[in-house]
């Protein structure tokens, strides 16, 4: 499957060298050093992300074309929306080929020299110290996690639901700020239930990828989250609702109770 799809991607991206960095159920993500329309100098090290949504053979071709196009556009629109909320860091949109399911965007993050040059996703960033209790729970970590929580809070205040909050989808920038990526499952919603579930997904993700320190990490994340709502009275009421729902979801373990 993979090779066929990579070839298909390449056919829509002629002369662009592609390097696969991940292959999910939805999309394949590549990096390239070639900018789509700016002259690239030979010794440039800047990389760009290309996200490709391949066609799905099981779908009716009309449905498939529509879904691919709409989802690609929706993701690009979300990136645009985030551009207009300067307090939230996100990758910038570079180019869009919605018909073929392709988005080009900025690559955020840096290579962790103390961790095999892996990308500075929150996951990797935390995993550096997984075997060292002292280093895993420092002030530096606390501050970073609070910043992450704060960013998610700000997203929710703006009714942006990420939809897939895992520690792989949060990047720590070189300036040690938090940046959200991968908005493939994101959508707009004011419902406290949706925000609660967004938080629950992150809670579970932290628990499964960083079990040793999950409790403390989630505590710091939530502290930052609350800060993200600011001091405005209306926002604080919204926050209360969300936190209430979040607790309910945690107890229930799932979004809704079953239908008979």
């Amino acid at each position: 499957m993979s090779d066929e799809l990579i070839q298909l991607a390449q056919s829509h991206l002629q002369n662009i060298p592609l390097q696969v960095i991940s292959q999910g159920a939805e999309a394949i993500v590549f990096t390239t050093k070639t900018h789509p329309y700016l002259p690239t100098s030979k010794d440039s090290h800047t990389e760009y992300i290309i996200k490709y949504r391949p066609p799905k053979k099981y779908r009716h071709p009309q449905l498939d074309a529509t879904l691919t196009k709409h989802r690609t556009i929706a993701e690009a629109r979300l990136l645009q929306r985030l551009t207009n909320i300067p307090e939230i860091q996100s990758p910038g949109l570079i180019a869009l080929d919605a018909r073929n399911g392709i988005i080009w965007m900025e690559k955020v993050g840096y290579e962790l020299i103390d961790y095999d040059d892996k990308i500075s996703s929150l996951k990797n960033w935390l995993w550096r110290y997984n075997d060292n209790q002292e280093k895993a729970l420092t002030e530096e970590i606390k501050i970073a996690l609070e910043k992450v929580g704060c960013m998610i809070g700000k997203a929710h205040v703006n009714d942006v639901i990420h939809g897939d909050l895992t520690s792989s989808n949060i990047i720590i920038t070189e300036a040690q700020e938090a940046c959200l990526i991968d908005f493939g499952l994101s959508y707009q919603s004011a419902l406290p239930e949706d925000k609660g579930v967004d938080l629950y997904v992150l809670d579970r993700a932290i628990l499964s990828t960083h079990p040793k320190y999950a409790e403390q990490y989630n505590e710091w994340l939530m502290a930052g989250y609350e800060r993200g709502y600011g001091k405005d009275k209306k926002s604080l009421i919204k926050l209360k609702e969300v936190l209430k729902r979040y607790e309910e979801v945690r107890l229930r373990g799932r979004k809704r109770s079953m239908l008979g």
Binding site: A76, Q80, T83, L93, L96
Partner: peptide, 16 residues
């Protein structure tokens, strides 16, 4: 930079 980002967004998303 921000202005450029906003402009590129608008250009790429025109008609979408």
């Amino acid at each position: 930079s921000l202005l450029l980002r906003k402009t590129v967004d608008l250009i790429q998303l025109r008609g979408c």
